[in-house]
Simulated assay, not measured.
Amino acid sequence: MPDDTDRFRLQVVSEALRLFAEKGYEATTVDEIAEAAGISRRTFFRQFRAKEDVVFADHEILLEQAAAFLDAEHEDPWAAVCEAAMIVFERFSHWRDVASRRYAVVHEVPALRDREIVTGFRYERLFVDYLRARLPDEQDLTMVQFAAAVTATHNYLLRRMVRDGAATTSTELRSALAALRRDIDRRGGRDGAGDDMVVAVFPRGTAPRQVADLLQRRLELGGL
């Protein structure tokens, strides 16, 4: 959860985005942001290098939190990357109003759109660097592709939520990321995907149709 410093930064972000929406990004000054947030100009510059940094301050908080999570020990590095993406998504779900206002502002300012692209890439780079450190024998292309897919999936569902107002849930993202994780096992031959035989045991006299229905349901759930 955000600490006191992060909550302070988010308060400034919220006031800045409100002003940007009302007056326009270029027309809003640092002094106006500081006054709206109830802080001095000097305090503002202790936390932010420039007005542009305010727009993406919540991303900086979440990048730090994702990095801290990945620094801990995890049994499955692939799953850890997925969980880090979940942390980011769930935080943005709590900060949905801020994320929606930022989208509206960024959409109007080309320089901010460029900054957003770079910020998104920083998550992907964080995931790649983590996987390279934890899985030195894994193919580099596989790790790059996985990190890119996780980031793209997260961003797609997040944009649906903040841009389109879709009722996107963390469950939807978790399901999509789990599919990416299973694909890694299939590509690495770790889930028996290459096996040609399935063995199942049923009581004598079970009707063939019932056998078929039970097998289908179990396979759809992920195996026997």
Rank of each mutant, 00 (worst) to 15 (best):
A72Y: 02
T28C: 10
D114E: 08
V88A: 14
E220R: 14
A37E: 04
V199I: 11
A50H: 08
T28W: 15
R182Q: 15
A66W: 04
V13A: 11
E22A: 07
G194K: 03
A27Q: 09
T29W: 15
A79E: 11
V198W: 14
V98D: 10
L135V: 15
L177R: 05
H107T: 04
D58E: 14
D183I: 02
M161P: 00
T28P: 00
L177D: 01
A178G: 03
A67Y: 14
A34Q: 04
V162E: 00
V54S: 13
A50N: 09
E32V: 01
A67K: 13
G222N: 14
A152I: 00
K23G: 01
R187N: 07
A84E: 05
R160S: 07
A207C: 04
H107Q: 09
P110C: 06
T151V: 06
E124T: 13
V199Q: 09
E64V: 15
V150M: 12
F92K: 06
F69T: 13
D191L: 13
R102H: 06
Q139A: 11
V30C: 11
D53Q: 12
R113F: 07
L135H: 12
F121M: 09
E60H: 08
E15A: 10
V162S: 01
P203T: 05
Q47W: 07
R159N: 08
E108T: 02
Y25S: 00
V201T: 08
H59N: 12
S14L: 02
Q210S: 15
E220V: 01
Y156M: 10
A34K: 03
A84G: 07
A193E: 10
E15Q: 09
A37W: 03
P2E: 01
A27D: 03
E138N: 12
R96C: 10
S170M: 11
W95D: 12
R181A: 13
T28K: 08
E75C: 08
R115P: 00
A147P: 00
L214I: 04
R159V: 02
M161T: 01
L158G: 00
Y123P: 00
A21F: 02
A85V: 01
E64Y: 11
D183C: 02
L63D: 08
A57T: 05
L63A: 14
R217L: 08
V54Y: 12
E116Q: 05
R122T: 15
R163N: 01
E124W: 08
W95G: 11
